[in-house]
Design a protein around this nucleic acid. Structure first.
Lengths: 153, 153
DNA sequence: GTAGCTGCAAATTCTTTGCAGTTGT
DNA sequence: ACAACTGCAAAGAATTTGCAGCTAC
C-alpha cells in the first residue's frame, strides 16, 4: 500500500508549485525546503514509484536530459529556447501525425520537441509582454529551465 | 587539424554499414571488428568530435537513451515499436509545426518521436511484406533496435 | 617533427541498492 | 504491529579525463 509521506508530498508540491518539468536534482533542491532531511535516493525512488502509478510523466529533453512533470491536464509538447535555455509548454497539437506512418503502423503516442528562439529572445523589443499575451491566447507558457546540456565540448 | 585515423574510419564505417542510429556501445562493438584495439573512451571522444563537426547527429530516444546517426540525406524522424522494440525511420514530414508556436517564437529545429505498433507487429498476418512495401512507397524503413529502455521498473 | 589521437586506468557523475532504523496507516 | 519508506553509504553504470606512448600528415 502506498504511503503518503512528508517526502513524497514535498516532491509533488515542488512540481505543483513550479508547474514545469523538473530534473531529479531540481526536485531535491526544491523539496528539500519542505523536507530538509530529504536525500537524493529517496527522490529517485519516489520518482520511480510515481512514474509507475502514472502520477508523473517523464520528459526527455534534447541532449539526453530527463525531466519529470505532472501528467498534464492538457496534452502538450515542449519548445526549448536556444537563447535563454527555457523550456516552454506548447498546448496546441492540431496535427495529423498518423498520416506520416506507413500502412499497418498504429500510432499510440507522440512526442514533439521544438527548438528555436522564444518570443522574449527573438524580438528584443517584443519582451515578456509577448509571452503573457501568448498565455492569454492559450498557446504556450514559459515553464522550465533546460537542465543538463551544459558541457559545451 | 582533423586526422583520419583507423578508429574514426571504423566508427563511421559502422554507421554507414548499419545505416541506423547506434548507441555508443554498439559503435564500439561494431567498430571493434575493424579495429580490435578500439577503446570506449576513443568512441566517446570521436562521437563528440564528429558531433561538433556536424558529421554525426544525436538522436534522443524515449527513456533517455541516446543514439547517433549520420546526418540524414533526408530529414526524418523516428517511430519506436512498443512490441518489437525496433526503431523505424519516418521520412515523411509534411507538417506545419510553426503554427503551433505563439507569436514571436522562431522555429529552428524539431524532433518528432512516434511510438506504437509497427506493421510487422500489428497485423500478425501483415508481415514483413508490409514493411518492404512501405519502403518502396518511400515512407519508412526499419532500422534500429532501441537500446536502453530496459529497466521495466 | 609534432599536434592530434589512442588505450588504459583512474576520476566523475548519475542512478541504484543494501541495510538498519523510522513512520504512516 | 508491520510493511512501506527513509537516509546513508556503498555499489554500479555511464561518461570523462590525465597521461604516456603512437601515428597521420
Amino acid at each position: 500500500m502506498e504511503r503518503n509521506t512528508l517526502q513524497r508530498r514535498a516532491i509533488l508540491k515542488a512540481l505543483d508549485y513550479e508547474n514545469r518539468p523538473l530534473a531529479v536534482q531540481e526536485l531535491l533542491d526544491l523539496a528539500s525546503k519542505d523536507c530538509p532531511s530529504l536525500g537524493i535516493a529517496t527522490v529517485y525512488r519516489n520518482v520511480k514509484t510515481l512514474l509507475l502509478e502514472g502520477r508523473l510523466k517523464q520528459v526527455d529533453m534534447p541532449g539526453g536530459a530527463v525531466l519529470y512533470e505532472k501528467p498534464g491536464i492538457h496534452h502538450h509538447h515542449h519548445f526549448s529556447c536556444k537563447s535563454c535555455q527555457k523550456v516552454f509548454d506548447i498546448f496546441e497539437c492540431a496535427l495529423n501525425l498518423s498520416k506520416l506512418l506507413p500502412e499497418g503502423f498504429m500510432l499510440e503516442e507522440h512526442e514533439i520537441l521544438l527548438s528555436g528562439v522564444c518570443g522574449n529572445c527573438s524580438g528584443s523589443k517584443a519582451n515578456s509582454a509577448t509571452q503573457e499575451k501568448s498565455m492569454l491566447e492559450g498557446k504556450s507558457i514559459a515553464v522550465s529551465i533546460d537542465t543538463k546540456n551544459s558541457s559545451a565540448n
